[in-house]
C-alpha cells in the first residue's frame, strides 16, 4: 500500500519564451512520492504550475531537470502505459457517439473479441451513461460529457489516473456528485488518483493527502493528511475536521495567492 507509485526527484520546468527572449521558471525543484492506491490532490494559486506538474507525470511534457518515474521506470516525454488523464476542457470527440468516444483509446489495444464491448459496457454502466450510448456529445450536458471522458480513461484500466481540474467547468452540485463518483471509481479500480484542483473543499473532501503549492516557481509548501477512511463520500463535509483541514489549506495558501496577484500577504506590522 505504501509503495511509491510515482516518484519525482528535483523536478524543474523552465519554459523559454520564443520571440520574447528570456525564460520562465515555472516549477520546482520539487520532490514528491505518490503512494500506490492513494488519492492525492494538489492545490495552489493560479499559474503556479499545477497543470505543468500533471503534464510531466503524464509524459505530455519533459522536465528541464530532475527525474519523474512511474512504477520505477523513468518517464521522459514518453506517454507511459497504464496512465489515464481527464482534462478540464471537454475532450469528447464531437463526431463520435458516446460508445465510440469511450472505445476510442481501445482502437489501438489488442484485445480479444468481445473484451472491447464488455469493457465499454462496464464503463457505460459505471458512469451512469446507460440510455445515451448512441447520443453525440453535443446532446449531453457538461457533466455527462465529462463522464464520457472519464469512461474513456477507465476502459484502459489505468493504474494511475490524473485529473486536471476535471470539474472546473461544472456547477457546484454537479461537482459534489461527480466527486462522489470519482471516490467510488477510486475504490473500485484500486488505481492511484492524482487530482489537480483550485477548490480547497473539493481537495479536502476527496483526497487522502493534499499538497499545497507555492506561487511560481511552483514548489510544495506542505502536505496535509486528511485521515479519512477509504469508505467515504461527500458527507465528510459534515465532519468536524473538514472545516479545520480546509482552513489549514487556506492558511498556507493565502499568502501565496496574495503573492501571485502581486500583493503582500498578511496583516501589516502594527495594523489591526
Amino acid at each position: 500500500m505504501s509503495v511509491a507509485h510515482v516518484t519525482l526527484r528535483g523536478v524543474t520546468k523552465v519554459f523559454s519564451r520564443p520571440g520574447k527572449g528570456g525564460e520562465v521558471h515555472a516549477l520546482g525543484p520539487l520532490d514528491l512520492d505518490l503512494r500506490s492506491g492513494e488519492f492525492f490532490a494538489v492545490v495552489g494559486p493560479s499559474g503556479c504550475g499545477k497543470s505543468t506538474l500533471l503534464e510531466l507525470i503524464a509524459g505530455l511534457a519533459t522536465a528541464s531537470a530532475g527525474e519523474v518515474a512511474f512504477e520505477g521506470r523513468p518517464i521522459a516525454g514518453e506517454i507511459p502505459d497504464g496512465v489515464g488523464v481527464v482534462f478540464q476542457e471537454d475532450a469528447c470527440f464531437p463526431w463520435l457517439t458516446v460508445v465510440d468516444n469511450i472505445a476510442f483509446s481501445l482502437r489501438k489495444a489488442r484485445l480479444a473479441p468481445g473484451e472491447r464491448e464488455s469493457r465499454v459496457r462496464d464503463a457505460v454502466a459505471m458512469m451512469g451513461l446507460g440510455g445515451f450510448e448512441r447520443s453525440y456529445p453535443a446532446q449531453l450536458s457538461g457533466g455527462m460529457r465529462q463522464r464520457v471522458c472519464i469512461a474513456r480513461t477507465l476502459v484502459m484500466k489505468p493504474r494511475l489516473i490524473l485529473l486536471d481540474e476535471p470539474f472546473g467547468a461544472l456547477d457546484q452540485q454537479t461537482r459534489l456528485l461527480m466527486g462522489e463518483e470519482v471516490l467510488r471509481l477510486w475504490r473500485q479500480t484500486g488505481a492511484t488518483v492524482f487530482l489537480i484542483t483550485h477548490a480547497l473543499d473539493e481537495a479536502t473532501m476527496l483526497a487522502d493527502r493534499i499538497a499545497v503549492m507555492s506561487a511560481r516557481p511552483g514548489r510544495i509548501l506542505e502536505i496535509v493528511e486528511t485521515g479519512w477512511p477509504r469508505e467515504r463520500d461527500s458527507r465528510v463535509v459534515e465532519d468536524a475536521r473538514f472545516g479545520a483541514l480546509t482552513a489549514r489549506l487556506w492558511q498556507v495558501l493565502r499568502q501565496e495567492s496574495m503573492k501571485s496577484i502581486g500583493r503582500p500577504g498578511g496583516v501589516p506590522e502594527g495594523g489591526a
Partner: peptide, 24 residues
Amino acid sequence: VLLKAARIGRLTPVEVATQVTLPY
C-alpha cells in the same frame, strides 16, 4: 485538448490526422 487526448492514446502522427484532426 483533443490533441493531448490523442497523445495520451499514443496515436502516431498519421493516426492523429486520420482519426482526430481530419474528422474534426
